[in-house]
């Protein structure tokens, strides 16, 4: 699902585009997506609403609002979009996804330090040695807290 919507709004993040134009397009895309998905649902009548009535009507409002934002922004101007922090996005979300990929497969003992180490690189003033030590210590603390103290069923070691 993440590829479907996420790819689209990225296109607006170039330099010099009005922020509200981007915002409007973002809403229009979401609106179109929901219209497409809810098109086949029965809409029913006001007296007995069908499943599709609300998604359709809200999506229409949202899309109209998006168009309004674009028009107003083109007429009045306003703030421009700033470049996104790609480094932060990549390493923070990457760390989270790495955690998801490894936690069941290898257990928290690997997933913890791995995802934390990876995420540490999201900032330019990363100190790898410090980050590695911190990641290991934090993971040990989390295992103690979540597994032993609170008894959550999170896998710790699965590869032995």
């Amino acid at each position: 699902m993440s590829e479907q919507i996420s790819g689209e709004p990225d296109k607006e993040s170039g330099r010099g585009i009005l922020q509200d134009v981007g915002a409007g397009v973002f809403l229009i895309l979401i609106s179109l997506f929901f219209l497409w998905q809810a098109w086949d649902l029965p809409r029913g009548s006001l007296r007995a609403m069908g499943a599709g009535m609300l998604p359709m009507s809200i999506a229409v409002i949202l899309g109209a609002g998006g168009v309004l934002l674009v028009i107003m922004s083109l007429v009045k101007g306003g703030e421009r979009l700033t470049t996104p922090h790609v480094r932060g996005l990549f390493f923070v979300l990457g760390g989270l996804i790495l955690f998801g990929l490894t936690v069941r497969w290898l257990g928290l003992i690997v997933a913890g330090p791995l995802s934390m180490m990876f995420a540490s690189f999201a900032t330019a003033d990363v100190r790898p040695v410090e980050a590695a030590i911190f990641a290991v210590v934090m993971t040990a603390f989390c295992i103690g807290l979540f597994k032993f103290l609170l008894g959550l069923p999170i896998p710790i070691i699965t590869f032995i």
Binding site: M116, A122, T123, A131, F134, A135, M138, I154
Partner: peptide, 15 residues
């Protein structure tokens, strides 16, 4: 420093 804080937040949130 934040460079240590955010990985800690990340792991707590992930778990």
């Amino acid at each position: 420093p934040y460079r240590l804080m955010f990985p800690a937040i990340l792991i707590f949130c992930s778990i």
